[in-house]
Write a protein that binds this DNA or RNA. Structure first.
Lengths: 158, 158
DNA sequence: GTAAGATAGTCAACGTGGTTGACGAAATAG
DNA sequence: CTATTTCGTCAACCACGTTGACTATCTTAC
């Protein structure tokens, strides 16, 4: 009476989820590099997305990302240097410095969205569309509601 | 002729994979903290696993983890301080310093494996066993072969 | 109108995890 | 015996995160 299925060790699940995430992100950035955005790091795409079309402030960005305002400010500094974000004074509040996506940042964001669409289509081609939606539904069911925190480096490393 | 299914934006897939990974790892470490291993960080479990029962050297550990030997050495230093690893001289080669898992490290490793089994069983309870195996199969199909690199902080942040 | 409190941004110091370059000590190849 | 390779470490640096302290500004209350 051998079991027909080999046992699936529990630690395989997180490894496969990380591998899937990493594969998608690596494919994204390989294509972004071909399209002129080689400097963009995985973290930066999430930050640009969090800044959004309307712009925001460093403090609010930190809240959206689940990190301190100081950490958000330093990350904005780097993306300003790289040409993806810009800071402008807020005429209605001299304390605030609005963070906005530059045209180059908007280009990277637009290309990222397109590439993600193509990657999802590739997954649907290989696995079948219903398997991809099932995967999304199942992960949505199991993942905690607070999954929008992007403090990955500090979270993972400590 | 409206499409019966709402469109699934492509960027949802990586977010869901990350959320699933993070949920599992957070649940693991919440339980590990309850069982006396509060100091263990997500990264550390992977490092302990990579050291393995037979022990290894810092250079080989770096190769297994996809990081430099210097980075591996520094991580080993921290885990030695925390009591999870120990260094012993290699009698057959005075250059080498064997890295071994301590009893405390082995305890953490054993508990981690048990907790992962329970977490996978929870997923199977909620989603159905066949959905979990399908998820694993699909991710195995899509994930690149080189998914065993654990340089997550540097990879993500740059 | 002014004093008190809340908020935005920055500076400084530090910890963790990563990198490259250089170097001494020990093993191995010729 | 010499030349080369390998292992570990040191030093300097960068990216990302933290907390604490501080200034400048806006808001609220009296």
């Amino acid at each position: 009476m051998a079991s027909p299925e080999p046992a699936r060790p529990g630690f395989g699940l997180p490894l496969l989820l990380l591998a899937g995430f990493r594969t998608l992100i690596d494919d994204l950035h390989a294509e972004l590099a071909r399209e002129g955005h080689a400097e963009l790091r995985p973290l930066h795409g999430f930050v640009l997305q969090a800044v959004g079309a309307d712009g925001t402030t460093a403090t609010e960005l930190g809240q959206r990302l689940g990190i301190s305002k100081q950490a958000a400010g330093k990350t904005v500094d780097r993306l300003v240097t790289a040409g993806y974000l810009e800071r402008v004074d807020d005429p209605s509040d001299a304390r605030r410095r609005l963070v906005r996506v530059t045209p180059r940042g908007a280009d990277g964001l637009r290309r990222s969205a397109e590439i993600f669409e193509r990657l999802r289509a590739q997954w649907a081609d290989t696995l079948g569309p219903e398997r991809v939606t099932a995967l999304e539904d199942d992960l949505h069911t199991m993942a905690s509601a607070n999954w929008f925190r992007l403090d990955v480096p500090g979270w993972f490393g400590g």
